[in-house]
């Protein structure tokens, strides 16, 4: 076993523990009110129908949400190494990072104004 991998293993364990704890806590703490929908085999909060709404298409809203999520996901992927190396990179990287975030926010503003965040 090489030494550098120990922290990674530790992190893995930590992550698993966090997930397990959350599930367990909700099991214990959360209120339990059953209804028919919740007892369905595939549960998503909506009554399942033989065919999806809109003639077999999955509403595009789901994709919008997913894409928005990915945009910010990628942003944080960039932010993380930047934060780690912040001291070495100095002002230059700070300016570049601000520009990057602004660019992402342009997209965010667009989505917001054009109704991408409204569910209906």
């Amino acid at each position: 076993m090489s030494e550098p991998y120990v922290p990674i293993l530790f992190m893995l364990g930590l992550g698993f523990a966090f997930a397990a704890l959350s599930v367990f806590t909700s099991l214990v703490v959360g209120p339990k009110r059953y209804n028919r929908a919740k007892l369905e085999a595939y549960e998503c909060g909506i009554q399942p129908s033989p065919q999806a709404a809109g003639g077999g298409r999955i509403p595009i809203k789901y994709y919008l949400t997913a894409m928005l999520f990915i945009v910010f996901d990628i942003e944080s992927v960039f932010l993380y190494p930047f934060a780690v190396a912040f001291n070495k990179l100095g002002l230059f990287a700070l300016v570049e990072m601000v520009l990057f975030i602004l660019t992402v926010f342009v997209a965010y503003a667009y989505v917001w104004r054009r109704g991408g965040l409204d569910w209906d």
């Binding site: 660019t103 997209a107 503003a109 667009y110 104004r113 054009r114």
Partner: peptide, 10 residues
């Protein structure tokens, strides 16, 4: 292009 996106929004 970016300003164009904002124009489209606002």
């Amino acid at each position: 292009a970016l300003v164009g996106v904002l124009v489209e929004a606002f």
